[in-house]
């Protein structure tokens, strides 16, 4: 079980959290102007990175808030967690955010 550092509550066991998948996927500002390919890419295509991955978590059984984590998917080590609206640190941006 992972220990996850909620930016609002501190370090808690994974069982308190829900995973929200890849982070920093912005909802298209004008969905009606998208082609079918662009809409499918937004809905379904994922980077599925082997390495540093930025992902959303929600402290579902805690404060209930969403936040982001940068986790290495080859070791499961969480390098950093950060609040919604923040960007991953520059050193962590080698992988596409």
């Amino acid at each position: 079980m992972l220990l996850i550092n909620c930016p609002y509550c501190g370090s808690r066991p994974e069982a308190e959290f829900a995973n929200g998948g890849q982070a920093h996927i912005a909802r298209p500002a004008d969905p009606m102007s998208l082609t079918d390919d662009e809409w499918a890419a937004y809905l379904y295509m994922r980077d599925n990175i082997k390495g540093l991955h930025h992902e959303r978590w929600r402290h579902a059984n805690g404060c209930g808030r969403f936040f982001n984590a940068s986790r290495d998917t080859t070791t499961d080590v969480i390098k950093r967690t950060y609040r919604m609206g923040e960007r991953p640190e520059a050193e962590h941006q080698g992988a596409k955010p």
Binding site: M1, L2, E14, A18, N19, G21, N48, K50, H53, E55, R71, T73, T74, T75, D76
Partner: peptide, 10 residues
């Protein structure tokens, strides 16, 4: 619940 390449799990 999370993506991983570690070939282990919780």
């Amino acid at each position: 619940v999370y993506t991983s390449y570690t070939q282990r799990g919780g």
